[in-house]
């Protein structure tokens, strides 16, 4: 009886402190109908609710592009920055406030092109953050220019006779970076897989790099086999990987994959067709840069601070 009462009151407390989905909803999104960004926003809100995170203790950071409007629609602290520079801002937040979880939202042009340098270095820093690239293989906000991931020969406003180069493979690029600790790929037309992937990324300690394939219904409606209808994928399966729901097995082959094996992960990452879906690589033991820095930093009390400052002045005192 007593234990039942205790359980009830515990439930009551939990109920009070449990956040609802609405707690993470800001103004209604203004993305186009059918845009995959809607799905990513909803998945993020579900993950935050599942983990019952206080909205004031999350920071979402984005660059510029359609998907980078996401912080406007997610009711946490958000920073909608400038093109390509979300990761340095996120690094600053993590370095100064490591207690705040950080979510970074970028597009393919934002991350892989103008922000390329920051992308590679953030992976090397391995800051503890969920890094989502919403890849629609086109610059959409500026109205259809080729991005680094635009497929071979596709016509855009800057490549009216077809693109000139093979598309960048972001997975193989990150798999070549020192300190890579988490790589996954998913797609917005696979909502359950998307949820599970973001969930896994949230739980990872370190930089979780997630490439999310999503079709731009306005400028690239035919991308990804018209939004996954005709897009060959292979699901990566592992007991600790991204769960593959039974319905998903109809949408592509399933391949056993050990995401802890970096060589195997690199091999999977270079194969773009069929596109690997799931957890490509994870190493939870790579230290996060901000934690290395905090561990080496002394945080003296004010008296010690003053004594040390006096000692520094002593070094330069001449008379």
């Amino acid at each position: 009886m007593v234990s039942m009462l205790a359980e009830e009151s515990l439930l009551e407390v939990c109920a009070i402190e449990t956040h609802s989905l609405e707690d993470y909803e800001a103004e209604p999104p203004r993305w186009c109908k059918g845009c995959g960004d809607h799905g990513v926003l909803a998945a993020l809100q579900r993950v935050l609710r599942k983990n019952n995170v206080d909205p004031e203790n999350v920071v979402s950071v984005s660059g510029i592009g359609c998907s980078s409007r996401l912080p406007h629609y997610l009711k946490t602290y958000g920073f909608h920055g400038i093109h390509g520079r979300a990761l340095p801002i996120a690094t600053g937040v993590r370095l100064s406030r490591p207690e705040l979880p950080v979510i970074v939202i970028m597009g393919d042009g934002d991350c892989f092109s103008i922000g390329g340098n920051h992308w590679l270095h953030a992976i090397r820093y391995n800051i503890n953050a969920v890094v989502l690239v919403l890849d629609n293989e086109v610059y959409a906000l500026t109205k259809m220019q080729a991005s680094p991931t635009t497929p071979d020969g596709w016509k855009t406003n800057t490549t009216p006779r077809g693109t000139y180069l093979h598309p960048l493979n972001p997975l193989s690029a990150v798999m070549g970076m020192t300190n890579i600790s988490f790589v996954a790929q998913t797609a917005t037309w696979l909502p359950a897989h998307l949820d599970e992937t973001i969930d896994k990324a949230w739980d990872h300690h370190g930089l979780s790099f997630v490439r999310i394939l999503q079709r731009c219904p306005v400028f690239m409606p035919k991308a990804f086999g018209e939004g996954g209808l005709n897009f060959p994928v292979v699901f990566l399966e592992h007991a600790d990987g991204i769960p593959i729901h039974p319905l998903l097995r109809k949408r592509g082959a399933v391949q056993a994959h050990d995401h802890r094996d970096i060589n195997e992960a690199q091999r999977v990452a270079v194969t773009a067709d069929p596109a690997p879906m799931g957890l490509v690589y994870q190493n939870p033991d790579v230290p996060a840069y901000e934690e290395i820095r905090w561990q080496r930093q002394d945080r003296p009390d004010h008296q010690t601070f003053l004594r040390r400052l006096e000692a520094e002045m002593d070094r330069y005192t001449v008379t």
Binding site: R85, P88, I89, G92, L95, D298, R308
Partner: peptide, 30 residues
Amino acid sequence: IFEDFGGFVHQAEDEIAAIGVALGASYAGK
């Protein structure tokens, strides 16, 4: 000496990231 005083010097990957990290830290309150 900065670490002895509870501070960091962060050497960024480029000048743009250097100000970006500083701005991120300032935004976060420091």
